[in-house]
Design a protein around this nucleic acid. Structure first.
Ligand SMILES: Nc1nc2c(ncn2[C@H]2C[C@H](O)[C@@H](COP(=O)(O)OP(=O)(O)OP(=O)(O)O)O2)c(=O)[nH]1
Ligand SMILES: [Mg+2]
Ligand SMILES: [Mg+2]
Ligand SMILES: [Zn+2]
Length: 600
DNA sequence: GCCGTTTTCGGCCCGACTGTTTTCAGTCG
């Protein structure tokens, strides 16, 4: 299992759902959801906090929640949960996933018709029994049927990199509609979440209903879920044939800031801000900040934040994970920006499974304004990725040095993406690694290994003095392959101790390290390196997704290795490789095989 | 069930859209 924190969070969410089905107090329901969220956000190991008896220091964890946690750690179950399962069939929780079906309807259908599962639900829809229940009719039945179909078709979240272009294209089309003024992407896409549930778009227009209506008639709109005076929800079909929900919100121009704030979220961030407004005797909604009838802010996000005593916050950190407290104390991080990135330290070429030559990659990097680029092809065991044999690697090193020598205005670094083998040893001997300016060590096998085994492999790799960074540490593919079960706290500790960077692989299918692990790593004093792992020139543009994810992990430029100048990078690398062996360090002749001048 | 620098009791975000309800509950953003 990934971690006790997540296991307990899942149980708390289920308790909340069961309580809600049982018709209990909605604030208690919220308390369980809030506790679950806090457990997901907390960086420390929950078992460790339990030992120290500091569980109630976690926000939203009080005496009851702490007892539940203790009980789970000791006995692997929570009595409260089991009681509830005795009262309400736990299979009903799955039915809540259907859009349009909430706790009240699920309970009514269960109590009157005995519906406990999706199959049962289909049956009572087809037989017409559902439509006969009090408070329900044929339209309700239709909505539920559509909800079930949508859940099957598009129940899964979509990776940011797949969703964002669709959202951008919609923004462009909405911008051309008559009467529409400003248009912005909002929601989880604006916050840069690794995967998104839908597309949220905000626009201003003097006449709301006209804009809403025009939106629902756009070509990509397949069907309309709801459309009113100020907003619409529709289903769009993407070019790859996937269905996605898109929500448009329309507000008058004077409310733009308040509306963007609202629609960007996150929901917990919104609620926290609204509670702050209440404390001051005001009201915050998507139309503005109000003192009685009087609007005191709303034209811009900054105005609203300022009135609440806060500085403006970057969307990426609006998760109510400490950013509001930081803003109150004027201690917000100075988040990393894309233009601070000076190089890419993990790209492939035709030598292994890339599509461009060393020279082409180098020229492209130079055109992007980079100061340095590290060519890192696969090592010999990566057979499906055409990994280089030792012999070919020596030749490849020669080739890389040749290009490095010829190209001006870019430091081309000799590198490798060396496999971490099953026993934690590396796929190349140290003689090769010593020739590299930068070494990325990656796991490409054994994804199912037990936590201890996989963790030990990574720790062993970090012990190697030539390993500069661990590539895509958890090996996950968003929506496709689970992360390797690793003890990330151990790995972060060891990375700090061994002076090894952890990669944030920028490809939107990976984003690995993920945002929360980035934050944990930085907290642990680890340096992150954001690499695209490009397999073609175009892939180098993926850097932006890595930067967004790093920002979600509160990364500043100083935490990110590839924002360092070439000299700074060199100095950083020199700390682990304490032996003098580089001519640039020692001023002496190259150590070995040094026909070419080593550019580094 | 959690929380508190005016509180250990009494609050807990706020609004839009839908359907079948004759006045608003349920669901969602
Ligand atoms: N105040 C308030 N705002 C909400 C609530 N639900 C949603 N919002 C706001 C904040 C959300 O970021 C925004 C868009 O809603 P979504 O349901 O699409 O959530 P979001 O985009 O954050 O995540 P997603 O990836 O779509 O699951 O609307 C709510 O209950 N209260
Ligand atoms: Mg959304
Ligand atoms: Mg939405
Ligand atoms: Zn790679």
């Amino acid at each position: 299992m990934a971690s006790k924190n997540l296991e307990i969070a899942k149980l708390f969410d289920e308790i909340a759902d069961l309580l809600e089905l049982a018709g209990q107090n909605r604030f208690r329901v919220n308390a369980y959801h809030n506790a679950a969220r806090s457990l997901r956000d907390v960086m420390a190991d929950i078992a460790e906090l339990a030992r120290q008896e500091t569980l109630t220091d976690i926000p939203n964890i009080g005496a009851s929640m702490a007892d539940h946690i203790q009980e789970y750690l000791e006995r692997g179950r929570i009595g409260r949960h089991q009681e509830l399962v005795g009262q309400v069939p736990h299979t009903l929780v799955a039915l809540l996933q259907i859009p349009g079906l909430g706790p009240k309807k699920v309970m009514a259908i269960y109590e009157n018709l005995g519906v406990k599962s999706l199959e049962d639900l289909k049956r009572v829809l087809d037989s017409g029994e559902l439509a006969k229940l009090p408070g329900m009719g044929t339209k309700t039945a239709d909505r539920i049927r559509q909800g079930m179909a949508f859940l099957e078709q598009a129940g899964q979240r979509v990776p940011l990199g797949a969703a964002r272009p669709v959202a951008m294209s919609l923004v462009e089309q909405i911008g051309k509609l008559p009467g529409v003024e400003r248009v912005e992407v909002a929601g989880s896409i604006r916050r840069g979440k690794e995967s998104v549930g839908d597309l949220d778009i905000l626009c201003t227009a003097p006449v709301g209903p006209a804009a809403v209506e025009a939106f629902t008639k756009l070509p990509p709109v397949e069907r309309v879920l709801a459309a009113g005076q100020t907003k619409a929800s529709v289903i769009v079909r993407t070019r790859v044939g996937r269905e996605l929900q898109a929500d448009l919100r329309v507000v008058p121009a004077e409310s733009f800031g308040a509306a963007l704030l609202y629609f960007t979220g996150s929901k917990p961030h919104n609620i926290h801000l609204r509670e702050m407004a209440i404390k001051r005797g005001w009201k915050l909604n998507e139309y503005g900040l109000f003192e009685g009838e009087k609007m005191i802010a709303g034209k811009t996000e900054e105005q609203v934040y300022k009135k609440l005593g806060l500085s403006w916050m970057e969307p990426e950190i609006r998760e109510d994970a400490g950013e509001i407290e930081a803003a109150e104390q004027k201690r917000l991080p100075k988040l990393l920006a894309l233009d601070q990135v000076r190089g890419d330290l993990h790209v492939h070429t035709v030598a292994s499974d890339g599509q461009n030559t060393i020279e082409e990659m180098a020229r492209a990097a130079k055109d992007m304004g980079y100061e340095y680029l590290a060519i890192a092809d696969h090592s010999k065991s990566a057979a499906i990725a055409s990994g280089l044999s030792i012999e070919r690697m020596w030749d490849h090193i020669h080739q890389m040095r040749g290009v490095a020598h010829r190209i001006k205005g870019l430091a081309l670094l000799v590198s490798t993406e060396v496999d971490i083998l099953a026993d934690g040893s590396l796929d190349y001997p140290n003689e090769i690694l010593a020739e590299c300016d930068f070494v990325t060590a990656s796991l490409h096998s054994g994804f199912q290994q037990p936590r201890e085994v996989a963790t030990r492999r990574v720790l062993a790799a970090m012990e190697n003095p030539y390993v500069s960074s661990i590539g895509h540490p958890t090996g996950r593919l968003i929506g496709k392959r689970e992360a390797i079960d690793l003890d990330m706290r151990e790995i972060i500790k060891a990375a700090a101790e061994t002076h090894t960077a952890l990669e944030l692989n920028a490809h939107w299918e990976r984003l690995d390290l993920k945002d929360q692990h980035v934050r944990m790593a930085i907290e642990g004093g680890v340096t992150i390196v954001i690499n695209t792992d490009a397999h073609s020139i175009g892939d180098m543009e993926l850097m932006e997704y890595g930067v967004i994810t790093a920002r979600r992990g509160w990364a500043e430029a100083k935490n990110v290795l590839n924002t360092f100048t070439l000299a700074g990078l060199k100095k950083w690398l020199g700390r682990k490789r304490s032996q003098p062996r580089r001519p640039s360090r020692t001023g002496k002749v190259p150590v070995s095989r040094g026909q070419e001048e080593i550019p580094f």
